[in-house]
Design a protein around this nucleic acid. Sequence first.
RNA 1: GCUGCUGUAGCUCAGUGGUAGAGCGCACCCUUGGUAAGGGUGAGGUCGAGAGUUCAAUUCUCUCUAGCAGCACCA
Length: 662
Amino acid sequence: MLSITLPDGSVREVAPGTTPADIAADIGPGLAKAALAAKVDGEVRDIMRPLESDAELALITSRDEADALELARHDYAHILAEAVQSVFPGTQITFGPSTEDGFYYDFAPKDRPFTDEDLPLIEEEMRKIIAADKPLRREVWERDDLIARWEKDGESFKAEWAAELPEGEELSVYWSGDDWMDMCRGPHLASTGKLDPKAFKLLRVSGAYWRGDQRNPQLSRIYGTGWLNKKQLNAHLHMLEEAGKRDHRKLGQEMDLFHFQPEAQGSCFWHPKGYVIWQALEQYMRRQIEAAEYDEVKTPQLMDARQWEQSGHWGKYRENMFVVPDEIPSSEEDAPVISGTADMMALKPMNCPAHVLIFRQGIKSYRDLPLRLAEMGCCHRNEPHGALHGLLRVRQMTQDDGHIFCREDQLVDEVRRFCDLLDSVYKDLGFPDYKIKLALRPEKRFGSDAMWDWAEQSLRDAVKAAGRDTEDYGWEELPGEGAFYAPKLEFHLTDAIGRTWQVGTIQTDTVLPERLDASYVGEDGERHRPVMLHRAILGTFERFIGILIESHAGKLPLWLAPVQAVVATIVSDADDYALTVAGKLRDAGIRVETDLRNEKINYKVREHSLTKVPNLLVVGKREAEEGTIALRRLGSDEHQKVMTLDEAVAMLSEEATPPDMR
RNA sequence: GCUGCUGUAGCUCAGUGGUAGAGCGCACCCUUGGUAAGGGUGAGGUCGAGAGUUCAAUUCUCUCUAGCAGCACCA
């Protein structure tokens, strides 16, 4: 007999082979019906999978939402695969997990990739499978049998997968009824009918490489979102719709902040209002950097290819660089664009080599260290077309870049200081929550393994010293994701629809000082290599402003708002007074506009609300006579507040003070 | 770069094998109205580019290009 301990502490003695479903039935018919799966010693398992040893058992119902959703999504993925093979015979199945809000499955289509138009057909087939309430049955197979089976069925991807699963791992398959099976670790619900046929939706198709590697064949992926009931699904779809309204590209157009056009793809045209945000942010960053004892510099946009060869960028980063011939092109029609003997130059993709060149001017002493150079550096990177994404992924970017040259023994302290500075900036800018990752050595890299061991460990130590290697910060290590010259700490923020983007970073580099021969004279009178820390807090102004816009849904904090106040008239008799009001605000440093148009106040309120103007100062005859204004706040429930002009000026200039100057 | 979708007026989008429409915006006129759209008139388009099929292409086909979603790559 087995001793099964239930969550209430009671113990049941059952025969081996008893399933959690049997126990649920024994407890009561209500539970038997509600139970979706079981947690056996903390591991989620099929409810029909027999118990084999003493265990703690908890039954999972739809009230255990996280577990139930995970199970449901995993099932949806399998049902998707079954449906696709039924609608499109000859399609190979490969792999399909649950995701944060749904599921996907990758297929190798028989003759053409799937299109959006295929989705309704597949959805309909999925509903049939759910309606059929097919039992999902687990079976353990021998590896050779399984491979043979997949090969017989023409499932070459599955066969490859089965052959490569680690030795000693139990190879389980799941049957859907008696006519379809997939290799899967499980767990699954007891039958397809446990799912709500109205709680899922197929969203889109896309390409995806087999095993995530570009060198492999491309598969056709179908994404869906899946929930426990229709209400949850609708709530999710509504959320997606709302998130779409916060898209910085949409708001950028609506608020007249910036635009992109094909003649300069990936490079932003900042309009006056957008550039105000940039300026406010840049001035703020400059104050922070100055306080943190950086020296700001400015370095060349174009440098000779030989310089990039020496830094290593030519070898490891050239595919991302804009290369420019140093030659006066011929104006003759048939002349070649480049003569072939032209010297090459490249637009800088990074500021680091130029900073080393500044460091190298004159002889540096250990007394000069740490030397912190900062630059609002404009870089160009030839990013793949498909990667471009509004302000979040561009080809011309301005980094709040900086390089710290220090001794090895100063390194951990410098990284920690940086983490603190970054933390205070992110809090000022309204991002108390951010994630930290450590990107480890990539395949394509310079430097010895010993160097990488040391550099990676230095960052680990520093994060630990700063107390940020915790779950709150989403701390994790990412193998293979580092830069070619150094491992990097990455600081991530999230956009409107939940995609995360790297913004800040700090990297420990000994390669570049070596390659560019940077040195300082130590206390011992000998020459030593400095360690170089590459670091950015915002990352780039473009990406950071994009995220700033999305996180505030366009309603930026007052100190960053492009237009901080609009003075709107009710009647034209108040025009002169409105100009006086605006003049006073302008004198107090408020970014103000007037709206004297021949329109009703309703119209003006609506328009300025839609363009996210934070303060609307309404003036009519009454205000003009009394020297007051009626203040309407964006997004405020309260109607309006009448106050004297002097009060309004004092209040708004106080509120418009940047967070670090309060 | 790869897969799929999309490209019609400044914006959002209808539409058609016989060279085009709406709403908003814009200009002008009327209106001076107290907190999310007052009324009228008017201007505005090589239907992304090129090639093909056709008597005829914005519409069908192909190529290119740009945008969107995802993949891969990256701040």
